[in-house]
Design a protein around this nucleic acid. Structure first.
Lengths: 251, 251
DNA sequence: TGACTTTTGTTCGTATATCGCACAAAGTCA
DNA sequence: TGACTTTGTGCGATATACGAACAAAAGTCA
């Protein structure tokens, strides 16, 4: 790609959109400038452009994103057949298990939820389509990393911020690599309160008919309700069934 | 806003992202150019920029969005407290009703789902956070339009594509305006198979403590299961309870 | 309170990047 | 093969970003 094939004004604008998050729902020009590292004048133009197009509101002081911005993310969800195909299977799975069931794909060091059937809230985090979790400490993330060549998995770990969310969180890269090997062999990943205290989850890979991983499926349950050891006997068979059913559907 | 405060390269890029949808998950440069009406060279630069930033994949022929694009929409969801606050109430509501419950906001002529607790699939459409429906024929849309000054509601109707999705769909603006008045008086909107055959739904407005509408809540049920007339007695009390509980929570 | 400092928003001239056109090259299909 | 479509590229005209300068607003402190 030649240098002139890159529209930096577009790239800068996207960075400005990403400057908004849960801790910063409203931004002044100066704040957005600090977060993105872009010049105030440049950020101002991007924000005014967003506002002009209806993607943001401006009260003269702060900018806030509007629901119109959801069109951008939704363009992916509706354009990708996977979430639509998976959703009914997930609903059924969640219903049979009596627990939340989800599907995700890997994006860099994170997994991204692309479909979810939730039961009563067990986590402090509100997970919906588009939510992200670090791959190294989530059951679906483990499944994804286990499916990659070891070198790639190492590379992703090296870019990850391996922090101990709970006393149980594995943060040693070598230990994680060994865990990936175990996941690969047994065909599922089990997480016992590594992401959040009181939460267990179990995940399996979802492969297409060429044996390539296209998503991960999981079931999450409160540890108080289901001990980690029980997760396998109670939910693995259900996950395996769903996995097999979907394998037939996916080209 | 001065002319030079608008970054057209950014605006053009956003239009290119929106060119992707369920019917067009992969786009060539020429296709994207046709859809957006932008010059091929311009579209090409935007697509290559997206690809360079990891928001799109390029196989040398077609471009497809990657899950990274979800970050953009998610910036709104996580930056707006409303979905997070509402979700647990929706889960409980859906659980008690045994039907899907959702929340939405108005964006132009459409409602946008910002949270949803789904039960078994009853619609042909896969609704998730970020999904859109025309406001004029959806129960939550009616609630929103009823909450606006009549002039604004008329203006939105005039911009809407009022088509009859089913034989029951109301498409006459005057009839709709009269319906909005009824919705305002009775405090809820009932839709009997106007969006899709076999689907009924009932919605109420969700107001903050200043009495301003901030979202609409609804419950949807298969018509075969619950006749339209029954919707009110079965679900309105539950909706009202949730509405009241949330009113206290919202500032 | 008022003087002072710091932060923020806006404007401007200029160097640079981007646009859209026109043409060339490469596919595509009968 | 030839007609057609699609993609890539060079170039002049135009739009945009940068950084500095200034004005306005918001803090800060005695």
């Amino acid at each position: 790609m030649r240098e002139t094939d890159f529209v930096s004004g577009f790239a800068r604008g996207l960075a400005v959109i990403e400057a908004f998050d849960e801790t910063r729902p409203k931004l002044s020009i100066a704040e957005a400038s600090k977060i993105t590292g872009l010049d105030r004048a440049t950020v101002r133009r991007s924000l005014l452009t967003l506002s002009e197009l209806g993607y943001a509101d401006y009260d003269g002081k702060f900018f806030a994103l509007t629901p119109k911005i959801l069109r951008l993310g939704h363009a992916y969800l509706s354009a990708t057949p996977l979430p639509t195909i998976i959703q009914p299977y997930l609903d059924q799975l969640s219903d049979r298990a009596g627990q939340s069931a989800s599907a995700s794909v890997l994006d860099g060091t994170e997994i991204v939820y692309i479909a979810r059937a939730s039961q009563k809230r067990v986590m402090s985090i509100n997970l919906t389509t588009g939510s992200r979790l670090p791959a190294y400490c989530a059951s679906m993330g483990r499944v994804w990393l286990a499916a990659l060549p070891e070198q790639e998995a190492r590379e992703i770990l090296s870019r990850s911020n391996l922090k101990a969310n709970t006393p149980y969180t594995k943060t040693d890269p070598e230990e994680l690599i060994a865990e990936f090997r175990r996941v690969r062999e047994q065909g599922y990943a089990l997480i016992d309160q590594e992401l959040e205290l009181g939460l267990c989850s179990i995940a399996v890979p979802l492969e297409n008919d060429r044996g390539r991983i296209v998503a991960a499926l999981n079931i999450g349950a409160p540890a108080a309700h289901v001990a980690a050891a029980e997760m396998v006997e109670r939910y693995l068979p259900l996950l395996k069934e769903t996995q097999a059913a979907l394998r037939v559907v996916l080209r």
